[in-house]
């Protein structure tokens, strides 16, 4: 075992006691730039072999790892305003990795990776009890009520990097973890241990035509997300639940920031 190999392990060991992980991947989504076009959703679905049905209008059973929600300020015409919230999995850290979904899984089909801060979902291990879906306050988890159907020759466009799911299991956004694996493989093959910011980007980040999504290591001061998350206009969804999510949002509009945490009309923001 090489000496520097040991260093790579530290994150894991540190992680057992707290969030001393090597990486802490996260996202900052600029809601002032997001146009609500939905490209991130399609990029995500093609990247991750997410199937489609003939009727996807029942949004409760429509699987969208990344979903763009629309919020309005509730004011009448012409003072109405709308804002889109792209919602991937928040990869909640909770306290020491106790994400709401991870704690309740009886099958250990989902865990918190202390090396990356990413919450996994292992389809072959999941037996479909859906406790995690009940526990997730962001509705980021989806259940496969049916086996996927790939019509005509569309199976040809499936990616070998992500395993297609079967009926009866839960799935969710993985921050395109296979891209992390791919980037690390390349680094290893070149004799490097570290990957650069550009080498690992999620499909939604890469596709976003407005450049609204920024992805990187929240712990690394050289990554853009590190600074962006500290903006006074940055916030997280339902922050007061203590889920400690790793997806940050940015908006200069105060009603949008308040909408992010269900503040009551007369309640004071934090």
């Amino acid at each position: 075992m090489k000496e520097e190999h040991k260093e790579g392990v530290q994150g894991h060991e540190g992680g057992a006691h707290g969030h001393g992980e090597k990486y802490k991947f996260g996202m900052v989504i600029d809601l002032d730039k997001c146009t609500g076009c939905g490209s991130c959703m399609v990029a995500c679905m093609t990247e991750n072999n997410v199937p489609y049905k003939k009727n996807e209008t029942n949004k409760l059973d429509s699987i969208t790892w990344m979903r763009v929600f629309k919020a309005t300020n509730g004011k009448p015409y012409p003072d109405t305003d709308i804002c889109y919230f792209p919602r991937p999995c928040m990869h909640c850290e909770g306290e020491h990795g106790h994400a709401p979904c991870v704690s309740v899984c009886p099958a250990t089909a989902t865990d918190y990776n202390y090396e990356t801060g990413i919450v996994s979902q292992i389809y072959t291990r999941c037996f479909g009890c859906r406790y995690c879906m009940a526990a997730c306050p962001y509705h980021a988890r989806y259940f496969n009520w049916w086996d996927p159907v790939w019509p005509d020759d569309t199976k040809e466009s499936l990616s070998p990097d992500v395993s297609p799911r079967m009926r009866g299991v839960v799935e969710k956004c993985s921050f395109c973890f296979h891209r992390f694996q791919g980037a690390r493989d390349k680094a290893y093959a070149e004799g490097r241990r570290e990957i650069t910011e550009n080498e690992y980007q999620t499909a939604c980040t890469q596709a976003c035509p407005a450049g609204a999504i920024v992805f990187g290591d929240l712990n690394n001061p050289e990554h853009k997300v590190h600074e962006l998350k500290q903006s006074p206009h940055a916030f997280r969804l339902l922050e007061r639940l203590g889920t400690n999510p790793k997806v940050y949002y940015h908006s200069t509009r105060s009603w949008v920031r308040r909408a992010g945490d269900n503040y009551l009309t007369n309640e004071r923001s934090k």
Partner: peptide
């Protein structure tokens, strides 16, 4: 062909891509 992405450095879209553009795969195999 498994995925369509925006071309980095292209003077029009510089890496961005829209959902219709990504749908060319369905036109091909669908």
């Amino acid at each position: 062909a498994i995925k369509i992405e925006g071309m980095k450095g292209h003077p029009i879209n510089d890496g961005g891509v829209c959902l219709l553009g990504m749908s060319a795969l369905y036109k091909l195999y669908g």
